[in-house]
């Protein structure tokens, strides 16, 4: 069956309009729900750095977040930033780490999530810092929870977009993330050394010490990216970390 060109053109135009309309309708209709899903996912990641959320429903997680997390945004000098250039208030949860990553470090905004006892913002139990970097194939990111000494790692959570399953993608596994617990990011002289993954797996324990964790076999490049990400971001947050650890009373006032 041969149709005229006009018929073909009209058919494709109508088809495009119908399908396009369908997609936009779905997109508009689902947008609020998607936004909520993304918000829940972010808050879940932040909380996972400090507590086990196993068995909690979405709403319970959001409630827990509201009750136990307080956030601030700081700049590279560790000063609190409350408004952007236009004077609009900045909300830490709305700061897009990936977008900020493209700017020069001096211009970036750095959110800090403070995990405190439910309802009592004064008694901070942990500081959670978002980190962002590149793995082997694409972006990796995560949240690092520091104890109140601002030196010991309480917990970490990592996520990735396209790392190799079974190799680099293992950074999302609890077992790998638990290796970071209790490590220190400063040495005894108070110099920032960060925490790094070693090459290879099953490294003997004495090798690890306070600043190294066992690596992931077959995922050296992901681990290198992870190490760089941690070192970079601890560097960016160093001013803030120093401020907090230098004067705990001042922190409570913040």
């Amino acid at each position: 069956m041969q149709q005229s060109n006009n018929y073909i053109i009209i058919f494709t135009v109508v088809l495009t309009i119908v399908l396009g309309g369908l997609l936009s309708a779905a997109s508009v209709f689902l947008k609020p729900k998607q936004k909520k899903s993304i918000e829940l996912d972010t808050k879940k990641q932040i909380l996972t750095a400090v507590v086990d959320l196993e068995g909690l429903s979405g709403n319970e997680i959001l409630e827990k977040y509201d009750a136990e997390i307080q956030s601030v945004v700081v700049n590279i000098d560790g000063d609190i930033v409350e408004e952007d250039e236009q004077g609009a208030p900045i909300v830490a949860e709305k700061v897009d780490i990936a977008k900020n990553y493209k700017k020069a470090p001096e211009e970036r905004l750095f959110p800090v999530f403070k995990f405190h006892e439910a309802g009592n913002t004064e008694s901070v139990k942990s500081y959670i810092l978002p980190v962002y970097g590149t793995g082997l194939w694409g972006p990796i990111w995560g949240y690092i929870a520091l104890e109140t000494d601002m030196n010991t790692i309480k917990g970490v959570v990592f996520a990735h977009e396209t790392e190799t399953p079974g190799l680099g993608a293992r950074i999302t596994e609890r077992e790998v993330q638990d290796r970071f617990q209790g490590k220190n990011i400063f040495d005894e002289e108070g110099k920032l050394v960060s925490v790094a993954m070693l090459k290879g797996e099953n490294n003997p324990n004495p090798l690890l010490g306070a600043h190294y964790v066992d690596g992931m076999s077959g995922a050296t490049i992901t681990a290198d990216g992870l190490n760089k990400m941690l070192k970079d971001y601890f560097g960016y947050y160093e001013a803030y970390i120093k401020k907090v650890s230098g004067d705990t009373e001042k922190v409570a006032a913040l």
Binding site: L30, K33, Q34, S37, I38, L40, D41
Partner: peptide, 9 residues
């Protein structure tokens, strides 16, 4: 789109 909205994980 539906997955993104209802099953983000």
């Amino acid at each position: 789109e539906v997955l993104k909205a209802y099953s983000y994980d």
